[in-house]
């Protein structure tokens, strides 16, 4: 970063800050011009990929813009100096076709390999199972009870009063507890998500996890998992336009030490047999 750039940024930012009608007490943990903090294990790979592409495009850009500016200056119209007559050069065409083909194929293969791993790698067996179901405009969250097992989600059963599509008779689901717009994850422990939607498409987006997943209604997404490697408090944002209240469809998301997590769980009452889920079954069926 050159001195001038720093000066320019500070100047612009300073002016904007002074001019903005309010002071902004909150500052980010990272600078406002770049990536937010990264706390997820896959996130580091994604960031690395971003830097690979950034270097690649940066170098190519310097060459292309360098050539462009050089040509613009050198070949400006001057009296008495004519243009070269050339229809092209086939060798050059082959060269500048072949090189990008290899670069882009390499990028595609590298990206697909990483994507495949992120999608195919199974969550470790000890992963905390958490269900998150979006609705206009909030997040239903369901944690397993002492048995560590979530009730089985069935996308066909998701309905108005049964956000998670759980069979009322499923023993695994009886001790689960639910929250609304409130997620707490233990640090350094894998978390496997079960994502669904009650109405329109929502998306699970946490920039600090480098995690984005659409939640198309009518399906349950079981393949997303992550491991947060440091504590902090974040926000879960809906990132697929879902209607009027879309902009404020966010939930609290905290990554905390294991002990704090256990204390938090302790304060939660399990669902009982009289939970809304049992009565919801009939409604959900009627809805269909």
């Amino acid at each position: 970063m050159s001195k001038f750039c720093r000066f320019f940024r500070r100047g612009v930012l300073g002016a904007m800050l002074a001019w903005a009608s309010t002071g902004w007490a909150e500052m980010r943990e990272t600078g406002v011009w770049w990536l937010p903090r990264n706390v997820s294990h896959f996130g580091h790979e994604i960031d690395f990929m971003i830097y690979v592409i950034l270097w690649l495009t940066g170098i190519t850009g310097a060459l292309v813009f360098g050539a462009m500016i050089y040509f613009i200056v050198k070949y400006r119209h001057r009296a008495g100096v004519g243009a070269i007559h050339s229809h092209g050069n086939n060798t050059l065409e082959v060269v500048w076709t072949t090189i990008p083909v290899f670069i882009f194929l390499a990028l595609a293969i590298y990206g697909n390999e990483m994507w495949g791993r992120m999608r195919m790698e199974k969550a470790p067996a000890d992963a905390l199972q958490v269900a998150v179901v979006g609705e206009q405009f909030g997040w239903n969250v369901r944690y397993p009870g002492p048995d560590g097992k979530l009730g089985k989600m069935d996308s066909r059963k998701i309905g108005k009063d049964n956000p998670f599509g759980i069979d009322a008779n499923d023993p695994d689901g009886k001790d689960d507890f639910t929250t609304y717009n409130d997620l707490v994850f233990p640090v350094n422990r894998p978390v496997q998500l079960h994502l669904g939607s009650k109405d329109v498409i929502h998306a699970f987006y946490v920039p600090e996890f480098r995690l984005y997943q659409d939640m198309v209604p009518g399906r349950v997404y079981d393949f997303v998992w992550f491991k947060a490697d440091s504590v902090g408090s974040f926000q879960l944002a809906c990132n697929q336009l879902c209607g009027q209240g879309h902009y404020k469809m966010f939930g609290k998301l905290a990554v905390v030490p294991d002990s704090d997590y256990l204390a938090w769980v302790k304060g939660k009452a399990p669902l009982t047999a009289a939970s809304p889920n049992s009565s919801a079954e009939t409604t959900a069926v009627a809805n269909r």
């Binding site: 292309v64 613009i72 050339s86 065409e93 595609a108």
Partner: peptide
């Protein structure tokens, strides 16, 4: 990724067009 190739070709040819010109 592959569809980026023809766009790259076009960019290089535009540079080739102004190269040696009398702009």
């Amino acid at each position: 990724m592959v569809i980026a190739v023809p766009s790259a070709i076009k960019t290089f040819n535009w540079l080739g067009t102004i190269w040696g010109g009398s702009i």
